[in-house]
Structures are given as C-alpha cells and as structure tokens.
Design a protein around this nucleic acid. Structure first.
Lengths: 124, 124
DNA sequence: GCAAGCCATCGACGAATGTCGAAACAAAGG
DNA sequence: CCTTTGTTTCGACATTCGTCGATGGCTTGC
C-alpha cells in the first residue's frame, strides 16, 4: 500500500469549465456553444443540486464536506448522485481527505456563467 | 360571490420573474429559493431553448418574430413548444402583431440571474 | 483482523422531457 | 367564402431524469 501519490486528482471533467461563449445577447448562439452552455445551466436546473451547490459555495473557505451539506431532504445516494452531476458539469471538484470527501466550487465557472447573462452594451 | 378583486390579470407566469434569491455564494439556499431559481436555470438548460433565447436576445430591438428564429434544427412545433417553456419560466414575453408573433426578452430576469452568480465580496 | 462510519455505485421504478406528424386556430388576401 | 401562410395545440413515442434501497469500497479505530 505504498499509495503515496498525492495529486492525480485533476478530474477529466474539468474541460467543461473553459470559457465557452459570448454573452447570450451578443449574437445567436451556435449549436456547439448552446450545447456547452446548456450543460452548465442544466446542472443548476434542479432544486436539490442548486441547494447543494449553494451550500458548498457559501461554506467556509468555499469548500464543504459531504456530511455538512447532506441535509436537503433526499436520501444519501441521491445526494451523491447530484454531487456527481455537478462535478461532471465542471461546477464542483472533489477531494478525499481521510474519512471525508470535500467539495469545492470552481470559481471560473461562476464568472463564465455570469458573463453569459450580461446585457450587451448599447451598440453605437 | 362578489369577487370585486381588481387584478386577476397578472399572468401566472410573471411571478417567476421577481427578485428571488441572494447570490448563490451568500448563504445556503432554502428549499423555496432553490425551487424558484432552478426553474429559471432549467429553462436555459436545453440547447435548443438556449439558441432560441440567444436569438431573441441578440435580435434587433431585443425582439424577434418566430419566423426569424425558427432555424435551429428541429420542427416548427418543437420550436413553439420551447418558446412556450421560456415564456412559462418568465424569460420571454410574446405578442401577436397581425400575422406574426413576436418574442421579447424580459430584461430584469437576466439581471436577476446574473446576480445569483456573483461571487460574494471578501467578508471583512 | 474486524466493526463502524462515510461515501459511491448499482439496479429498478415512475415521472418528466424532447421530439415529431397531424390537426386546429388565427390573420390576410384573393 | 376559400386558400394560404404563420403559429399553437394535441397525441403519441422513446429517452432522460430524480429517486430509492441494497450493496460495495475506503478509511479509521478498536
């Protein structure tokens, strides 16, 4: 058990994070842009996921143990399922430290989604 | 049944528009807040709807005829279905003028959703 | 090693969703 | 009127989604 490796923890899912699209108001989205952006919106389009995400985002140091945020009215497997969805959408990352697993928000994603929703400045 | 109440004319859909929630990062969302906010994110969580919304939002004067934005790769009834969903979520409004129906973005909603995604300012 | 606690995965189920073609509705023009 | 054109509604279908209980994998502590 010489499992001394420390950080092969970068998720393959993190490519969903990247800057994807201009503001929604700038020009009509292409099919590809829409596909990418919709994946992120969809991830936040469920009440339970939104509560979980908000719980992590507002928690101390921007990270939270699963055990701290599991009280959202659904079973434990369901919580785990939703956290996985949020991970796959690139909104959260997870890391195991000893007994517990900690989730953390990917800050660049919030910024990217925020920009999508900005109004275009009055063009001339 | 002297129902003299004055304003039953408000669309049932328009309540989804209102200021609903603090930034996601401020504190954990309540179940109610999550329900409201998730409805809006869900509406944008489909690629076709996102393209339609973007097409309207980026169109001249912020409004567009259905016939101008129907080229998103699905049948016309499906376009109509998605536009209805966006209306019900409070993101778009529609108005018939003669032969054509025009859709228009509800600007306050973009602002509200944008605020949800803002990072909390460093506390103290 | 073994029991206990935390978290993820599996398999199954009903409900919701996206899609279409056909049909209905509405306005405009002959 | 009747036809044409633009848009919505209806009915049906396959797929996806949210949920659960049961099970499995890790890590810690005895």
């Amino acid at each position: 058990m010489s499992n001394t490796k420390v950080l092969p923890l970068i998720e393959p899912e993190s490519d969903a994070v990247a800057p994807c699209c201009p503001p929604l108001t700038e020009r009509p989205f292409t099919a590809e842009e829409a596909e990418t952006a919709a994946r992120m919106f969809k991830a936040l389009g469920d009440p339970v996921r939104l509560r979980l995400f908000s719980a992590v985002a507002s928690h101390e140091d921007g990270e939270a143990c699963v055990c701290d945020i599991s009280d959202v009215g659904v079973s434990q497997p369901t919580v785990s399922h939703h956290l996985k969805k949020l991970r796959e959408a690139g909104l959260l990352t997870s890391e195991r430290r000893g007994t517990w697993v900690y989730y953390r928000v990917e800050p660049s994603v919030l910024a990217a989604m925020g920009k999508l929703l900005t109004m275009a400045p009055p063009s001339t």
